[in-house]
């Protein structure tokens, strides 16, 4: 029943590494800055590396630093981390529809590597995605995140200011590059992205919801609304 399995797992892993390279580039400036901020917050290099190794979640790690600096108890920081990462429930459920079936322990391993960026790369691939492909994408993204966190702490500096500023576009540019091919082919994709973008702007600029929740709400609302429209108006023109 699977249409995949045409390529060997080695080839799929390499394709994953390739597809994940733009994530690695995009993580570099963010991880360097994280390492630097961790140092100024008073974390040792071992603590910094341990956090990037075990948590692997940019937004949550950044927020934890400002909470550590403010001297808040660890229970609150952990709770806050959970809230910030709630959107991954949605992505994990969606990824499950996209992935080939596999042993639970394998899925439990690659689930660790799920971030906004690895999810979008794996989930926008044509057809089903394989475990090896997902592992390749995650491996290179994870490597970049961990290594550059350590480098940022070690050298106590991030990139030259101009490059740091210019590279802040990297992950957004990647998202645009991932979306565009499907956008050109399907008006439904256009509506899905457009409605979610509009809702997220609305929530963000009115201050109605905090960033993490705004993305979850915008994504879920858009996915449901567009699907309801397809359901009630028939598939005419919306495929």
């Amino acid at each position: 029943m699977q249409m995949i399995a045409t390529a060997s797992s080695g080839i799929e892993f390499k394709r994953g590494l390739q597809a994940g390279t733009s994530i690695a580039v995009g993580y570099m400036p963010i991880a360097l800055t994280f390492g630097l901020l961790a140092k100024t917050t008073g974390l040792t290099i071992a603590e910094t590396l341990l956090m990037s190794l075990l948590v692997f979640a940019g937004a949550a790690q950044y927020i934890s630093l400002s909470l550590i600096a403010s001297g808040i108890g660890i229970g609150i920081i952990i709770f806050n981390t959970f809230i910030v990462n709630i959107r991954h429930f949605l992505m994990s459920a969606s990824l499950n529809e996209k992935m080939e079936e596999d042993r639970l322990w394998k899925k439990a391993i690659y689930a660790f590597g799920l971030t906004d960026e690895t999810f979008t790369v794996i989930a926008t691939r044509e057809g089903k995605s394989t475990t090896s492909f997902a592992l390749g994408v995650m491996f290179i993204a994870y490597g970049s995140w961990v290594i550059f966190s350590g480098v940022g702490h070690f050298i106590g500096a991030s990139l030259p200011a101009f490059l740091q500023a210019a590279m802040s576009i990297a992950l957004y540019a990647m998202f645009v590059g991932l979306l565009m091919p499907s956008l050109k082919k399907s008006i439904k994709v256009f509506y899905l992205a457009g409605v979610a973008a509009a809702l997220n702007c609305l929530f963000t600029f009115t201050g109605l919801l905090e960033t993490g929740w705004a993305i979850v709400a915008a994504t879920l609302l858009s996915s449901v609304i567009v699907e309801l429209v397809v359901l009630f108006r028939g598939r005419v023109g919306l495929t």
Binding site: S94, A123, I169, C201, S222, S223, E227
Partner: peptide, 21 residues
């Protein structure tokens, strides 16, 4: 709905973040 999520989340991840870098 779950298959829609990658495209919807891309829209939300891009805007307004890309304008506020």
């Amino acid at each position: 709905v779950l298959r829609n999520i990658p495209f919807a989340v891309l829209g939300a991840l891009i805007f307004p973040g890309i304008l506020l870098i």
